[in-house]
């Protein structure tokens, strides 16, 4: 994470001086964007840089669903299965994804291309069902649009 320190310094300057602890979430997020996951060495270095206990960072990593300690596939497909999406077909689309990719939700394809997850409501219920690919929302999905989308992901 050391190469990110100039960025973290800039971020820190925007917060009140007493808010060092608040930087844990944004720094962890940036580390994960950079490396794909958060490694043990990142935790040590970030704890040292912010002057917060190591355990605080570990707790944050285990608490928030968006953070991960292990690498995942190049494309992270996240299907919402909360109520409005289910009512508009997301259970059917999830089954379609599982068959197309040959994996169950929670797994990664052997070639490391795709990781499939289920997520809870993403605030996109009016354009349900929604599939998030890495950071991007794909709304009003159906099987044809999923097939076209998968083809475009290398």
């Amino acid at each position: 994470m050391k190469h990110l320190i100039p960025e973290f310094d800039a971020l820190r300057a925007r917060f009140p001086a007493t808010f060092a602890s608040s930087l844990v979430l944004p720094c962890v997020r940036r580390i994960q964007e950079d490396r794909g996951f958060v490694a043990d060495s990142d935790i040590d270095e970030l704890a040292g840089y912010l002057g917060v206990p190591r355990v605080q960072i570990e707790e944050v990593l285990s608490y928030y669903t968006m953070f991960r300690r292990k690498p995942i596939g190049r494309w992270h497909l996240q299907m919402c299965r909360n109520i409005s999406c289910s009512m508009r077909g997301s259970e059917r689309l999830l089954a379609h994804l599982e068959t197309s990719l040959g994996i169950a939700a929670g797994q990664t394809t052997a070639d490391g291309r795709f990781t499939l997850s289920t997520v809870e409501c993403l605030g996109s219920c009016g354009t349900a069902p929604v599939l998030v690919v890495n950071e991007t929302y794909h709304e009003n999905m159906d099987t044809a649009r999923i097939d076209a989308l998968l083809k475009g992901l290398d």
Binding site: R14, F15, S22, L25, P26, V28, R29, V60, Y63, Y64, T65, M66, F67, V119, E120
Partner: peptide, 12 residues
């Protein structure tokens, strides 16, 4: 006055 946009990380 300063405004910081702070991002959550997945927790209802």
């Amino acid at each position: 006055c300063d405004i910081i946009v702070y991002r959550g990380a997945g927790s209802y």
